[in-house]
Amino acid sequence: MATTKEGQFTTSDGEKLYTKTWLPAPDTVKARVVYIHGFSDHCNNYDTLFPVLANRGFTVYSFDQRGWGRSADTQAKKGLTGPTTKVLQDITEFIQSLPQEDLAQPLFLGGHSMGGGEVLHYAASGPKDVLRTIRGFLVESPFISVHPRSRPSAVTVFVGRLAGRVLPHRQMVNKLDANLVSRDPEVGKAFAADPLCHDTGTLEGLAGLLDRAAELQTGKCVVVDGVGEGGKTRLWVAHGTADQICDYETCRRWYDGLQIEDKEMRVYEGWYHSLHREPGEDKVRFAEDMITWLEDRCGEDGQGQVGAGTERSRL
């Protein structure tokens, strides 16, 4: 059975971030997965996914990002993520902090929602020496565009950007509709009641979030072939068609435009935003789909089983 370990990671600028590791049983480890959580979220909200991965031989390393979860241990720190450069630097430093004795194991980088968008930015612009150590990238419901139902008005965005130039650390509550997180109503209730899901961003952080999405949409930020381990980019994308937080159609168009040989998109018909927390057996299917892709790419030569732009649907 998998075990867990909590800890703390100190960034180069002295910020202490909460970490948690899900550890497989000894002698069963196949690979390592670093997973980045989403907006108004924290790593312990993945308790239906990370233990499953660990029980199948994948060590999962995660942390509450700057401004979120247990890393925001004061009111003043809530949403205080810093600019995109800081967000990506934290990911770099977290990867570099992983146990040195595990370096022989393949490394994958994944993320959900806001974290998925950050992973795509990282694949496009991260340090080359770190990218060369990453076997593959996984994104779940990546934030490339806000769904129209959840999108703030243009006036709100414009005024927020203007104010952010003067008061970048000014906090603003951007409440997510808990009913849109999962088709399981109990998940929505738990999300709404979770004090660590505080829905609070700063003007700087929210602007950075929107800018990252816009750069992916417009092609200013592009994930290209040849950046990962062994000179290959291996990418797995998962999205529900009924996601009303991150827009599926935009993600679909973005994916279709990728010039990457080893890419796969899993489309889940009628599913909501947090695929790992969908009701009943659906979350099990999602975990199995992810595990299948990971296992296919855990070959000793770093090549895995390459798929040429495949797509699969879950009904």
Rank of each mutant, 00 (worst) to 15 (best):
Ala72Met: 12
Ala72Leu: 11
Asp73Met: 02
Asp73Cys: 03
Thr74His: 09
Gln75Ser: 06
Gln75Thr: 04
Lys77Thr: 02
Lys77Ile: 04
Lys77His: 02
Lys77Ser: 07
Leu80His: 10
Leu80Lys: 05
Thr81Val: 07
Thr81Gln: 10
Thr81Glu: 14
Gly82Ala: 08
Gly82Arg: 02
Thr84Met: 13
Lys86Tyr: 04
Leu88Pro: 06
Gln89His: 07
Asp90His: 09
Ile91Cys: 08
Glu93Thr: 05
Glu93Tyr: 10
Phe94Ala: 05
Phe94Thr: 01
Phe94His: 07
Ser97Ile: 11
Pro99Phe: 08
Gln100His: 08
Gln100Trp: 10
Gln100Asn: 13
Glu101Phe: 05
Asp102Trp: 11
Ala104Ser: 12
Gln105Lys: 15
Gln105Met: 13
Pro106Thr: 08
Leu107Ala: 12
Leu107Trp: 05
Phe108Leu: 12
Leu109Arg: 04
Leu109Asp: 09
Gly111Asp: 04
Gly111Ile: 00
His112Ser: 10
Met114His: 09
Met114Pro: 01
Gly115Phe: 05
Gly116Pro: 10
Gly116Cys: 12
Gly117Leu: 14
Glu118Trp: 09
Glu118Pro: 03
Leu120Val: 00
Leu120Trp: 07
His121Pro: 03
Tyr122Ser: 13
Tyr122Lys: 11
Tyr122Ile: 00
Ala123Gly: 10
Ala124Gly: 12
Ala124Thr: 04
Pro127His: 14
Val130Thr: 14
Leu131Arg: 10
Arg132Val: 00
Ile134Ala: 09
Gly136Cys: 12
Gly136Arg: 08
Phe137Cys: 09
Ser141Trp: 01
Pro142Cys: 05
Ile144Ser: 06
Ile144Met: 13
His147Asp: 15
Pro148Arg: 09
Arg149Cys: 00
Arg151Ser: 12
Arg151Asn: 11
Ala154Gly: 04
Val155Gly: 03
Val159Lys: 13
Arg161Gly: 00
Arg161Leu: 01
Ala163Thr: 08
Gly164Met: 02
Val166Met: 15
Val166Ser: 15
Pro168Ser: 03
Pro168Ile: 09
His169Cys: 09
Arg170Pro: 03
Gln171Cys: 07
Met172His: 10
Lys175Ile: 05
Leu176Pro: 01
Asp177Trp: 04
Ala178Pro: 09
Asn179Pro: 03
Asn179Cys: 06
Leu180Gln: 14
Val181Ser: 05
Ser182His: 02
Arg183Met: 05
Arg183Tyr: 06
Arg183Pro: 01
Glu186Asn: 10
Glu186Arg: 02
Gly188Arg: 04
Gly188Asp: 07
Gly188Tyr: 04
Lys189Val: 15
Ala190Arg: 13
Ala192Lys: 12
Ala192Thr: 11
Ala192Ser: 14
Ala193Ile: 02
Asp194Ser: 06
Leu196Met: 13
Leu196Ser: 11
Asp199Val: 04
Thr200Phe: 09
Thr202Asn: 11
Leu203Ala: 06
Glu204Thr: 01
Glu204Met: 11
Leu206Gln: 04
Leu206His: 03
Ala207Cys: 09
Ala207Arg: 13
Gly208Arg: 06
Gly208Ser: 08
Ala213Glu: 03
Ala213Val: 08
Ala213Arg: 00
Ala214Asn: 05
Ala214Lys: 05
Ala214Pro: 03
Glu215Gln: 15
Leu216His: 07
Leu216Tyr: 02
Leu216Ser: 10
Leu216Thr: 08
